[in-house]
């Protein structure tokens, strides 16, 4: 990117800048990596377990949504803290876009979980939602982030104030995440694995599934990074356009 008009701008006003070379490299790697993960997810033989059957493969898709969401929210919190320290608009933009893409992954995680549970846990009951502790806490987490977006839009007219207040709120929202997603669900009876003190997998998870699961987590976090960076680029363009109009 050539030096922009914003070079004359103060450090704090400058729009975010993206390292395009790194972005393109990661994007290519993510596309190739995820294609391999998808192939592995369907081609590798897994043990057939009663009730689960082939839906056990959802482990490769549903669970990484949450990992991607958590990674996104940690990135958002990191930039929120950075904004409070430096007051740079670029950090505010990054925090917001990371939270946005993270919320997308969380929403997809909730919906995929509902579909999965409907045809396994709640197969005969016909339920889509039964307030399993982890479901409930994940929904609460998404609502907390939903409030972040409401807060931002409520302060739309005052960018200074909006940046500061929403960054403080975002830090709170990220800070409660480990408790909502890890600590509390494990204190209660839950159908999700982990409630018995098992850190991650059920004892019925076949080792071969980890071969796909971990790369899938990495791939989806990479996909988050690509989508987030793309949005940051678009936001930077909007800011520059606004500056041109003012000039």
């Amino acid at each position: 990117m050539a030096p922009l008009a914003s070079a004359e701008l103060s450090e704090k006003e400058r729009p975010p800048r993206v390292n395009l070379q790194r972005y393109r490299w990661v994007r290519g790697a993510v596309v190739a990596w995820m294609t391999a993960v998808l192939a592995g997810a369907f081609l590798l033989k897994i043990p057939r377990i009663n009730i689960l059957e082939h839906t056990a493969r959802n482990l490769y898709f549903h669970v990484p949504m949450w990992f991607a969401m958590m990674a996104a929210f940690v990135v958002a919190g990191y930039h929120a803290a950075g904004f409070l320290r430096s007051g740079r608009r670029a950090r505010d933009v990054r925090a917001f876009e990371a939270a946005r893409v993270g919320t997308l992954f969380g929403g997809v995680g909730i919906v995929t979980g509902m579909v999965w549970a409907r045809f396994t846990w709640y197969q005969s009951s016909g339920l889509w939602w039964n307030f399993d502790p982890k479901q409930t806490m994940a929904a609460a987490q998404l609502l907390i982030f939903g409030a972040y977006f409401v807060l931002r839009s409520a302060l739309a007219g005052q960018p200074e104030k909006r940046g500061r207040i929403s960054a403080v709120y975002l830090l709170f929202a990220v800070a409660v995440m480990p408790f909502l997603l890890y600590v509390l669900p494990r204190q209660m009876q839950s159908l999700h694995p982990g409630a018995e003190g098992n850190p991650a997998f059920s004892e019925i998870t076949h080792p071969i599934m980890r071969v796909v699961f971990y790369p899938s987590v990495i791939g989806f976090i990479g996909l988050f990074w690509v989508l987030y960076t793309q949005r940051v680029r678009a936001a930077a363009l909007e800011i520059r356009q606004g500056m041109m109009r003012r000039a």
Binding site: L20, R27, Q230, R233, M244
Partner: peptide
């Protein structure tokens, strides 16, 4: 495709 569109816009602004 979206990236290409963004890149074109970035170039035009520069």
């Amino acid at each position: 495709r979206t990236d290409r569109r963004l890149a074109a816009l970035e170039r035009r602004m520069d």
